[in-house]
Amino acid sequence: MNKKKIYPQWFVIIPLIIYAMFFLFPSLLGVFYSFTDWSSRTALNGLHFVGLDNYIEIFTSNKNYGSGIFNTFRFTIISNVVKLIPAFFIAVMLKGGLKGKGAYRTILYLPSILPFVIIGLVFKSIFNYNTGLLNTALEAIGLGFLKQKWLSDLGVVWTSIFGVDAWRGIGYVMTIFLAGLNSIPQDYYEAAEIDGANFWHKLRYVTLPMMKGSIMINLVFGVTYGLKVFDIIYVLTNGGPGHATEVITTYAFQLYSNGQYGMSTALNSILLVITAIIGIFIVKFMSRKETE
């Protein structure tokens, strides 16, 4: 009976063409350009194949693109840890009988709808060493010794970025966790309680196994977001102080602005390869778990 309602397979052709035209083709074209000397002068000088020159330049240049790649990984790992774990526990808390949980959910979710530009402006003001809200507040409550150069001290700047990123992202992650939690039948918890399970037992043997789907979704979103991070860094530090918080995308942006399009696409291609490898790994891992 359902057979009649299923759309024919050729319906997929149009989206497939659009996908190939606007996603696959530009991506492949980008990879192709990374092997050329494409630049702002190409219209005059022509486009030339340069082999692996751009890639060799990236890994041997004294401009230290390597630190940008390292920082990208660092951001991906730490930003996910500082968002996923707290968001999970907040979701568990807000799923329970907490008074005013609707208001908490809204408050936590609100930052994620703010544009990055606004977040950048607000937090740059808050983090200002002399006049910022944070240092002023610390001084006002007698904690002046905790004052920091939040965006200019090499030892603190990443903490500030992770803090702002977590502030913005926790609500979104929490919402996905909440959806996952709500799909767990209450009977499982009741059965576990009858068996004498405490909070941690229920968390370990009921909640976590049942939440695999939403954990994976958050992980995939978080990892892809982390690898292509740009906005939050750009608006808060623009890769600074010096080059301390440069990531792959900020370097790619600078190269593109300087008219070195070939080099820029080479950096982006490296990012594409990294994302693809990690993406394939996660998808395979997820498929395996689903089969199990």
Binding site: L154, G239, G240, P241, G242, H243, A244
Partner: peptide, 11 residues
């Protein structure tokens, strides 16, 4: 940016 890195001792 390089000047800042130099002043912070990383270059």
């Amino acid at each position: 940016a390089d000047m800042v890195s130099f002043c912070q001792g990383t270059m």
